[in-house]
Nucleic acid binder design. Structure first.
Lengths: 239, 239
DNA sequence: ATATTGAGTGAACATATGTTCACCTAAAGA
DNA sequence: TCTTTAGGTGAACATATGTTCACTCAATAT
């Protein structure tokens, strides 16, 4: 999707519906469904800008180095249209941060739903997490990178999101009854360390060269041992 | 230093030596010392480019978003001169990474020289580290940001540097005789976790709003507890 | 049926960018 | 002494950028 959106009449004139290439037309299904509500169309373009930014990140660019025009181009929209949705790049960035927060929380939700692997809990969780990260590579690349990298506004937003993630994790651990004699404050501190370790590992996971199983297993093994170390410390923690 | 370097004759014609402002002329001392060796002048300009990049980082920009022209301008050099020192921005970045590595290792060297604070070891070390980071804010901002943020080349270079830092730390801990019954591999793993925790904390330290002692103390306390947790885990670690 | 609204357009703007090139000149080498 | 070398210059280039503006036209509101 690299061509600006056209009005319906222009589209009909220049490009008959049956000639569209499915691969490059994510909205083709909807386009053949006739009239679209105004708010729905707006939401769709907004999403296209977000996806455009992520697509560029997926091609190895870092969010901080993206330009407004580049994102608009990727979204198939004229640069000026960007301003109908976001004041500036930071505001788009904040939308991405929120998406990242949702992604993180969903990981916990799925863990609650599916339960923790009963044997070899940490290693099992790490493998699930690794897969989760790989399947959502773009969001995690963004979060991991901008956590320390981008504008101050984004950094702070991500820090807040991380904090919520850690809190929710602490709550879940408490509900599971593990480490029942730890204060909430200690649990929060421990989960904070777990979260930074996880996000640091996310960066490692995403930079793994594919087809190097040895290096991959070493990375996983190291990640597992670091988490074991943390939880071992937690087991012996006295306030 | 925002004006391009001029040749000696031009300089003499336009700007008599006694009219220079010391503040904006870091090389003024040398300039009044007569002829400079070629390699020395080259090294000096190179350093000026590096310092220029760091200065821009210090003004809240992230390295990934810097442009060649911006850096050259900051260094007081014409854009084309950049190429006499670095092939491209990544190569300058690598120089900054190396500077970061040196900075990290010097921290260990000073710790060996001055010894670890005998009582309250971890808290004492944290306070020393915090001060060390604040005094070298620009390098640490760069390292913390580009560790997960920038180009793949820089990320890998920083990972390598981090690894060396962790290894040297492991070696030092071994030499100090703490945790003597841990294997080298385990020590290395533990130090890896300590390093990522330290660098993550560096980012937090640099983002502390000044004049907010409460928030500052909370941050420090949290950092201290996380390290305590890690070393407590290490104490109970069995292979 | 008609008027209003607002997402998206395309052109224009001033400015910034990376890279190249021939050139200058002072240090290094003969 | 004279020649060579190479760091630094300034101009030029094609291209990219953020932002503005009047405009279109289909979905909404009247």
């Amino acid at each position: 999707m690299h061509q600006p959106i056209l009005t319906a009449s222009q589209r009909a004139r220049r490009q008959p519906a049956e000639s569209r290439l499915a691969a490059s037309a994510p909205l083709s299904r909807a386009e053949s469904e006739g009239p679209i509500s105004r708010t729905e169309r707006k939401e769709r373009t907004r999403q296209r800008l977000i996806d455009g930014a992520l697509a560029l990140i997926g091609r190895g660019r870092s969010y901080t180095s993206l330009s407004l025009r580049e994102i608009a181009r990727e979204a198939g929209v004229v640069p000026a249209a960007f301003y109908r949705h976001f004041r500036d790049l930071d505001e788009l960035g904040l939308a991405l941060v929120e998406m990242g927060g949702v992604t993180l929380r969903r990981l916990l939700r799925e863990a609650r739903r599916d339960g923790i692997p009963p044997t070899d809990m940490i290693r099992g969780s790490v493998l699930i997490y690794k897969r989760y990260v790989e399947e959502r590579a773009l969001v995690f690349r963004f979060i991991a990178a901008e956590r320390a990298g981008g504008s101050r506004i984004l950094r702070n937003a991500i820090r807040t999101e991380d904090g919520h993630f850690a809190s929710e994790m602490a709550q879940d651990l408490r509900a599971l009854g593990v480490m029942p004699d730890l204060s909430s404050a200690s649990l929060q501190m421990i989960c904070g360390l777990v979260v930074t370790t996880m996000l640091n590992a996310a960066s490692d996971i995403l930079d793994l060269p594919r087809g190097q199983p040895v290096q991959e297993q070493e990375m996983v093994a190291n990640f597992v041992r670091q988490l074991r170390l943390i939880f071992l410390g937690a087991k012996h923690w006295r306030e």
